[in-house]
Design a protein around this nucleic acid. Structure first.
Length: 422
RNA sequence: GGAGAGAUGGCCGAGUAGGUCGAAGGCGGUCGCCUGCUAAGCGAUUAUACGAGCUAAAACUCGUAUCCAGGGUUCGAAUCCCUGUCUCUCCGCCA
């Protein structure tokens, strides 16, 4: 959420940002609401002041045994007026809040302007896509042939876009996220978290999934709980409504979780394999940092995620998302895209974003340093990495002409010494 | 699921026959004094949000709100009533 005062004082800046994002939101209702609200506020506060002063006076009079009927009667009227005004303000507040929560973050100046993902800018590449001297198979074929992935029965037991991992497949999945967690905790200084896989609606508002994107999530019936679409939600909200001690910053967390996405509107896209599931595992990186450091922290975070791909020796590239492809809460995002032979292309496997104080303001996460007023922290997060897509990339990139799959060297210790799935 | 107790400032903890309580006291923090050093001691200060005024912006001044949340009673509520949430204890159930 943007700062109310900032929007009030810089409407042109916000309007320009909305245009860059190709957003259709209009700011005018907001400005008008804001003005009306302040008008009423001044009025009601004057009345409240009067009530406070006179009530005190009544107390004093009663103490010395005097009646103050006329004052009481007058105040009864004033209180009624206050009640009405308060109600009007409450409604205005609500409307204002609704508009404010629907305004996306302002893209950073370094973000390329564009309409959609085709305007994303490639920053760098790592590794060379392997040249196959046979016809490489997609991972869903490999998985079924080796009997390590069962899409059929996933569909039977639950529904489309749910999968069973089996035998070496399950072991590989587990090896991959254990490896990722070890890299980030031991080499990159992240503190590990295992969060709740459900959160309440307040937390969903805090990170920006609600109120706009309710249809993308699974809600638990008869409760206020949602299945998390990413560990970003519980982990970022870990410190909501708190004032952190400045000497605790920066805070780095990495978290393993299952992620649940309704994938509304994704019908027909990535229908086969592990790429787009309703449930998948992910290791997430989350940072809470001082505002002045956040862009440097974004670079570092991205490198931390890249490191995993490098260690697994999977070719990838890094792209900067254009304003048209940028997520709602993000001011700047780098996507890591891994090489997938079945797509004959690079496919997103991590998304690393700087949210500035956008989430911190929604979730009310502040820090205090010295005697100055508390400030909002900046939050960042990135996948480090999506586990299912990593497994898919390993199966495809490490397949052999005999139909087996070699295990990347760094995973051998995590696979009990198994070097090849056959 | 049943019964009971509780929720006050960064922390601990007063405050229930409603009235000057944003809230005693302690701890912690900050600044200053004192001190050969350390420790101790002395003094002061120490919540947040919103709005108005003044500002280039702050600072500042004033106002309003906030004693878990939301309603209610009342001229006036941390204090009374209702609802909800959470925590703790006991019982039941359970991985």
């Amino acid at each position: 959420m943007l700062d109310l005062k900032f929007v009030r004082n810089n409407p042109e800046v916000v309007k320009t940002a909305l245009q860059k994002r190709r957003s259709s939101i209009s700011l005018d209702p907001f400005l008008e609401l804001d003005e009306r609200r302040r008008e009423k506020l001044v009025k009601v506060e004057k009345l409240k002041n009067k009530r406070n002063v006179v009530s005190e006076e009544i107390g004093r009079l009663k103490k010395v045994g005097q009646l103050a009927e006329n004052l009481v009667l007058e105040m009864r009227q004033v209180s009624d007026e206050i009640k009405n005004l308060d109600e009007e303000i409450r409604v205005l507040d609500q409307q204002l809040q609704r508009v404010l929560l629907a305004i996306p973050n302002i893209p950073d100046d370094s973000v390329p302007e564009g309409i959609d993902e085709s305007d994303n800018i490639e920053l760098r590449r790592w590794g060379e896509p392997r040249q196959f001297d046979f016809d490489p198979k997609p991972h869903w074929d490999i998985g079924e042939t080796l009997d390590i992935l069962d899409f059929e029965r996933g569909g039977k037991v639950t529904g489309a876009r749910f999968t069973f991992y089996k035998g070496a497949g399950a072991a590989l999945e587990r090896a991959v996220f254990n490896f990722m967690l070890d890299v980030h905790t031991r080499e990159h200084g992240y503190i590990e978290i295992i969060p709740p896989f459900m959160v309440n609606s307040n937390s969903m508002i805090g990170t920006g999934q609600l109120p706009k994107f309710a249809e993308d999530m699974f809600k638990v019936e008869n409760t206020d709980y949602y299945l998390i679409p990413t560990a970003e939600v519980p982990v970022t909200n870990l410190y909501n409504n708190e004032i952190l001690n400045g000497d605790k910053l920066p805070i780095y967390h990495c978290a393993f979780s299952a992620c649940f996405r309704a994938e509304a509107g994704a019908a027909g896209r990535d229908t086969r394999g592990l790429i787009r599931q309703h449930q998948f595992n992910k290791v997430e990186l989350v940072k809470f940092v001082r505002p002045e450091d956040s862009f440097a922290e974004l670079e570092q975070l991205t490198l931390n995620a890249e490191k995993v791909l490098q260690l697994l020796e999977l070719p990838y590239r890094v792209v900067t998302l254009s304003t048209g492809d940028l997520g709602f809460s993000s001011a700047k995002t780098y996507d890591l895209e891994v090489w997938l032979p079945s797509y004959n292309n690079y496919k997103e496997i991590s998304s690393c974003s700087n949210f500035l104080d956008f989430q911190a303001r929604r979730a009310n996460i502040r820090y205090r340093e010295g005697k100055v007023k508390p400030r909002f922290v900046h939050t960042l997060n990135g996948s480090g990495l999506a586990v299912g897509r990593t497994v898919a990339a390993i199966l495809e990139n490490y397949q052999t002409d005999t139909g087996t799959v070699k295990i990347p060297a760094v995973l051998h210790p995590y696979m009990g010494g198994i070097k090849e799935i056959n």
